[in-house]
Design a protein around this nucleic acid. Structure first.
Lengths: 106, 106
DNA sequence: AGACCATATATCGGGACCCGATATATGGTC
DNA sequence: GACCATATATCGGGTCCCGATATATGGTCT
């Protein structure tokens, strides 16, 4: 079925605009989903490790801001492809129930 | 987050048109997803038990065809509501990436 | 007849993954 | 001093997927 979990999907989606650090991903995912998605930290770091190993994200850089370390992650080309494919699957799955035809790119 | 698993979603979607028995649900889910979703039997019966307990499906009737028993399941009103709500969530999630209408409002 | 496959049910165990709890650390607010 | 937001990471419990296994019938193929 090649399915992607919801957490993984929103992590990749959050990274589409620009590299973010862990905590920033959590906040961005919450924004993009109108507050519906609240990633737990345990979910985030586990998923981030898996995504890194799969080559869908890479460690971009590390910074120290106000004494707190920040580890920025960047989505790869493969990651972009994967998240777009998943978006299409989600749309098609939704259409099974809504019975509507989504207009893409209009 | 109140999330519904993909298997659960396609089981409910398969029952929208008419009551089906377990094996029929597997085939219908495959049809509706253009062959992408292949429910494993272990997934199906476990999910069916959970859905029954949650009141989203009910046992409709039992038949015996060619010596083989058939147990038909029917989706409830709550099940219809749940699967429609999930369809909306899927559509909104897809839009986050496809870049269409942003999820406005809270 | 024997082998195999589709149909049809159900259970078990391994594994994947989510997530709250916990730990550690800094700096601002009350 | 207490508390909270920021920021990282790990651990263990629980949920759920799914392949393997078991049981049973009837059709097809050799």
């Amino acid at each position: 079925m090649t399915k992607m979990t919801e957490a993984t999907y929103f992590i990749l989606a959050a990274l589409l605009d620009a590299p973010l650090h862990g905590y920033g991903i959590i906040k961005r995912a919450g924004e993009q989903s109108a507050g519906r998605v609240k990633l737990a930290v345990g979910t985030l770091y586990g998923a981030l490790d898996r995504l890194t190993e799969a080559g869908l994200v890479v460690l971009d850089r590390e910074e120290v801001v106000d004494g707190r370390p920040r580890r920025y992650y960047r989505i790869t080309d493969d990651g972009v492809t994967a998240v777009r494919e998943e978006a299409v699957r989600l749309q098609q799955a939704a259409r099974v129930v809504t019975g509507q035809i989504a207009v893409v790119g209009a």
